[in-house]
Design a binder for these strands. Structure first.
Length: 444
RNA sequence: GGAGCUUUAGCCAAGCGGUAAGGCAAGGGACUGCAACUCCCUGAUCCCCGGUUCGAAUCCGGGAGGCUCCUCCA
């Protein structure tokens, strides 16, 4: 399949480093608050990517970290009057609730910063030993001039960065470009190190975690596009210095979600929290996947409403199809027709093309349209069954699973009674049974 | 100042050199015991100007909008 690689700025043919296995890491949250719908975009995207790769028969090993040590967490602990660890635990739990809410697989590997301090210290010491880092007044900084390709990921030149007035100037650093690996700290949770008590810098943790978990170059490193610089650039610099590789073969970044035309931010008061979404979270997921992952989405309530309606249509048609097959005992896993396989081909083609999920969604619509047409005309069971099969697969890959259970014998009798009542035009009775059935969640 | 992205019907959006997917909204029809759903029909020459080509929304050059990043930020 093809994927856009931020490192080369090109769409490239993606091949796993090891045949049959794909390793993915994407930057997770700093757990000091709830997440908003923009924060959830990478969750949805990388979950979808994972499910698609699995659909292709690949084994996917995915990891995403929790930054559970950070000044924001310390601040939040003061606001809430609880410890830093309690803050972190609370928002990790909330985050995972949201992961499950958007129907993403939560079984990925979840390293926490506080669980890899010894390895981080070791990593930093390794950089010092190689001359790529230096201690300065109990802080440790990375010496950017020690690596050649700094700026390769984000297309920046070091001399331009130095000229830019926005690089922080500090007496502690040899160069404005240098960034902190370890910071002297004496409040809240602190750790002993060869350089005194302190905390690790943000950019080191991901490197260390990746090395811990995957032991070397991984296939895909992901995250939001605003992490490209400096975070991911700095990760690469550190890893190049110590391990002589760029950490990941493919760097994949998703674009942000704006609220209308504005950046979603607390100060503007336009944040939409995942936990407060009033729509079916799968409708949010449908919205996200209806856009190319590298395009900014301008979210509005109206837009979400549109996709809520759309998801409801998907749900209804799929449900109707399911019960039709159920009643007629026409499920057949082997069903295959020209139309269903051609739709599946389109779906695959879309995803092969740099995860073009908008076109994948279109394939789902096409399948549903066929279902509706057949249901109101020939009711051909073979076609319906085959469409059901491909729909189920496509919906699963996009995390839009609609889980239904087959009717039990009692329900089946009620269903027959409803059909009978309708045919004898006993509408009172028909309405009664319809209500019985809809109360059980069965859409007719 | 630097880097990247983007401009397609009322709105959202695909398209990656061969003659404009899909969705929403709107209008017209059909189906229907009721309700919901569903089905059919109706719409754009692609920001502007040049160029390359038998042929361009698609490639190149120029111009004009919009956005993002360069600072903690998914």
């Amino acid at each position: 399949m093809k994927l856009y690689n931020t490192y080369t700025n090109k769409i490239e043919e993606f091949k796993p480093l090891k045949e049959g296995v794909v390793t993915i890491y994407y930057c997770g949250p700093t757990v000091y608050n709830y997440i908003h719908i923009g924060n959830a975009r990478p969750i949805v995207f990388f979950d979808t990517l994972k499910k698609y790769l699995e659909f292709k028969g690949l084994k996917v090993i995915m990891a995403s970290n929790f930054t559970d040590l950070n000044e924001k967490i310390l601040n939040q602990s003061k606001i809430e009057g609880i410890s830093e660890m309690e803050v972190a635990d609370k928002y990790i739990e909330a985050y995972l609730d949201n992961v499950r809410a958007v129907n993403a697989d939560d079984s990925y590997i979840k390293p926490r910063v506080t669980e890899c301090i010894p390895e981080i210290i070791e990593f930093i010491q390794g950089l010092i030993d190689k001359g790529s880092a230096y201690e300065s007044n109990a802080d440790v900084y990375f010496r950017v001039s020690s690596v050649k390709n700094y700026g390769a990921l984000s297309n920046r030149k070091t001399d331009e960065l130095i000229q830019g007035a926005r690089v922080e100037v500090s007496d502690l650093k040899e160069s404005g470009l240098d960034f902190a690996l370890w910071k002297k700290f004496d409040e809240g949770i602190v750790y002993d190190s060869p350089w005194g008590k302190g905390r690790p810098g943000w950019h080191t943790e991901c490197c260390v975690m990746i090395n811990n978990i995957f032991k070397g170059l991984i296939d895909i490193h992901g995250g939001g596009s605003d992490l490209v610089f400096p975070h991911h650039e700095n990760e690469i610099a550190q890893n190049e210095a110590l391990h002589h590789n760029r950490l990941a073969n493919f760097w994949v970044h998703n674009a942000r979600i704006n609220f209308g035309d504005e950046k979603m931010s607390k100060s503007l008061g336009n944040v939409v929290w995942v936990k407060d979404l009033t729509c079916d979270p799968r409708a949010y997921r449908l919205l996200v996947l209806s856009y190319p992952y590298r395009n900014i989405i301008s979210y509005t309530d109206e837009l979400q409403l549109q996709f809520s309606k759309e998801f409801e249509k998907i749900r209804q048609s799929y449900t109707k199809l399911f019960y039709f097959l159920d009643v007629n005992d026409a499920f057949n896993k082997d069903s295959k027709t020209g139309i269903s396989s051609s739709i599946l081909d389109k779906f695959i083609e879309a995803n092969e093309n740099d995860m073009n999920t908008p076109n994948g969604v279109t394939a789902i619509y096409e399948a549903l349209k066929n279902v509706n047409q057949i249901l109101r005309s020939t009711k051909d069971k073979e076609s319906l069954s085959s469409l059901y099969n491909v729909l189920t697969v496509m919906l699963h890959v996009y995390g839009l699973d609609i889980n239904l259970e087959r009717m039990g014998s009692e329900t089946r009798l009620e269903y027959d009674a409803w059909v009978n009542a309708r045919s004898t035009k006993d509408f009172e009775k028909a309405d009664y049974y319809r209500k019985v059935l809809t109360d059980k969640g069965i859409e007719l």
